[in-house]
Design a protein around this nucleic acid. Sequence first.
DNA 1: CTTCACTTATTTGTCTTACAATAAAGACAA
DNA 2: TTGTCTTTATTGTAAGACAAATAAGTGAAG
Lengths: 233, 233
Amino acid sequence: MDEFKHDVVVKSVHRNTLSKQVVERIVQLLTSGQLKPGDKLPSEMELMEMLEVSRPVLREALSSLETLEVIKRKTRDGTYINDKIGSKPFSVMLALSVDNLPAIIEARMALELGLVTMAAEKITDEQLAKLKKTIEDLDNRTDNDYGDIDKQFHHLIAISANNPVVEGMIDSLIITHDKVNSQIKMRERELTVQHHTAIYEALAKRDPQEAFTQMYHHLSYVRDKVLKYYTNE
Amino acid sequence: MDEFKHDVVVKSVHRNTLSKQVVERIVQLLTSGQLKPGDKLPSEMELMEMLEVSRPVLREALSSLETLEVIKRKTRDGTYINDKIGSKPFSVMLALSVDNLPAIIEARMALELGLVTMAAEKITDEQLAKLKKTIEDLDNRTDNDYGDIDKQFHHLIAISANNPVVEGMIDSLIITHDKVNSQIKMRERELTVQHHTAIYEALAKRDPQEAFTQMYHHLSYVRDKVLKYYTNE
DNA sequence: CTTCACTTATTTGTCTTACAATAAAGACAA
DNA sequence: TTGTCTTTATTGTAAGACAAATAAGTGAAG
């Protein structure tokens, strides 16, 4: 029996550890619809028997899935399938690119350009009102320390796109980008208000093209400023 | 000593297992620049001592990081930090949204709209030539089974945006979307050629706005068609 | 009967030890 | 120098035990 197994095993390019196979197996249960978000998985003991692996192997797999925020484990209770894509995995992965600031800025830009387009199709009146408020708040500031308000504006737009798949990504990017904003003392509050207003009005008109155009204008400006500062150290 | 520890421990909202703390610790080493892509981590034994955890805990953490494709482990050799963001983690996370086809389609749409904009700024002549070739291939097909060529076109554009951060995401989305394309027998090959040509020409002109507009036109059409088909079951 | 505190038992979390598998590095012979 | 073999360090897997946490059941007090 075991001998056959060794012959049959596909020696793929990348090392196939048992825990990886367990991860794949559980993911497959998800994609095939046998497991649904919210479902409770069997206990570790049962899973060990079902999958015929030792507990460390199983736990390495579950730990991986938990890090990916695919499952959620509760002591003494059990393991549950999450219902939405998490954001922490992205920030962890982004750690690999911390030294590539231009790439992060462009990634955020690309994502936001797409999101603002989708947002223009779907944004609600309440969300528009909130957006407007951030602009007013920004306009009323006397100092130039408005990083949080700015972030809020962009975050609101991302939310308004109302897409659970992409939602997690953008926050990680905005946060990373935030780190830079704090370094650069922005002084063009009025210009920011102007840009944000133009974007807001495009969204209010539910005009995807115009929303994109205004956001592109805004982000291009920000990017060039940051990168110019960045290359000069 | 231990009593103090219990008082000090921050009882955060989410359960803080040791393995999670180890993950955070290593990620922090990355973000702080003490670890760089390509670096080799100490052996498990050394890490155990450094971090003062048992081997299973450490291995759960390393397993998680490997699943996130942040590190790469080689038997008998050691653990290395990867240099680029992987794509598998995304496809795993996407498993949570398999039953939400509209969200996946829109996510892909949002991402591609951003990417085509960036691509227009950065695409090389070689990449343009490759793009043109996919259109010609498509035009020369006699049948309507051109899913691969279509995918290749979009993949090329994603590559042309030349952004390591986003690169991994798009493939997972395109693949998932692919599953749908195979179901729907597309019959508008000429229309696809027309759309792709328009996008290509905008890219050739290095015109981000126009590239966006044409891509938006194309993807809106595709989305509406797929969703119409989807809601009718 | 209700409510609260206590006990119990189940499940996840951690540790220790041991051994297997792998492949890099060195030793040795042709 | 080259090829083969042995060694050895490192990751991969397993088994067993105990700790910690908490949901659920139990019983006593009001």
